[in-house]
Design a protein around this nucleic acid. Structure first.
Length: 227
DNA sequence: CTCTCGATGTTCT
DNA sequence: GAACATCGAGAGG
């Protein structure tokens, strides 16, 4: 898989949002370990005219990176606790919000899965440790079992969840994603899928802009965030 | 399954 | 002071 070049992002924001589906977001941690997931859900934010877009408030310190070069990350905090990961596109003030990833592989310390003590069946849902459940390490790659099948399919099924999973925060605001270091997007495997186009989530305050179909996801994918 | 609610930091009015 | 591109826990059906 190769790193997506600058010109991939030098396109209309809606096209970039759709073209990102099926691509792979890769994170390399300080210890050399890494995690990655396929982008399965995205939203387009169309600049100063778009009432749901932060840049509709003007060019401020916060929105500055969205007016900068394409292919850089725009990251901010919402509700005091969740970082949102966006990718800046060509038009001034515009960006794509990455809303969900289907986990492809995870670093060693994240290779765990919930097991229900009562019946011994593996649960693929929930990350938090609950009653009657214990954490158990999943097999190492190459041990004969497919590690990806042991990854919780919902661990990155949401914009706040994926940044937590990949340890993406303010330190990546303005980061150049075309360098292929620490955090980047790579070409995925060619695989057919259908794109659903619907309304964006959590922007009801934006009037007519809330109704525009600027939210895209891969139909049927288990890692798409819940409504 | 559904619904409600609280957590919590930054930006904007 | 209010709002916010969210999530998960807990109560109830």
């Amino acid at each position: 898989m190769s790193v997506l070049p600058r010109n991939f992002y030098q396109n209309s924001t809606v096209e970039v949002a759709k073209n990102l589906l099926g691509k792979v977001l890769v994170r390399e941690f300080e210890d050399g370990d890494g995690s990655a997931g396929m982008i399965v859900e995205s939203e387009a934010y169309l600049g100063p005219d778009d009432k749901a877009c932060h840049s509709s408030k003007g060019r401020t310190k916060r929105t500055e990176v969205m007016f900068g070069p394409a292919g850089h990350a725009y990251i901010y905090l919402v509700y005091g606790m969740h970082y949102m990961f966006n990718i800046v596109t060509e038009a001034p003030g515009e960006a794509v919000l990455v809303r969900a990833l289907e986990p492809a592989f995870a670093k060693a310390s994240a290779r765990q899965v919930l097991q229900i003590e009562a019946d011994g069946n593996l649960s693929k849902r929930g990350l938090a440790k609950k009653k009657n459940q214990v954490l158990r390490p999943i097999p190492e790659p190459g041990s004969g079992e497919l590690a990806s099948s042991f990854l919780n399919p919902e661990v990155a099924a949401g914009p706040g969840k994926l940044t937590k999973w990949l340890d993406i925060d303010k330190k990546f605001n303005g980061w150049d994603l075309t360098k292929g270091e620490k955090l980047w997007v790579a070409t995925g495997e060619k695989k057919a899928f259908e794109i659903v186009e619907t309304e964006r989530i959590g922007v009801d305050y934006a009037g007519e802009w809330a109704e525009k179909k600027l939210h895209f996801y891969i139909r049927g994918n288990p890692a798409v965030s819940k409504r």
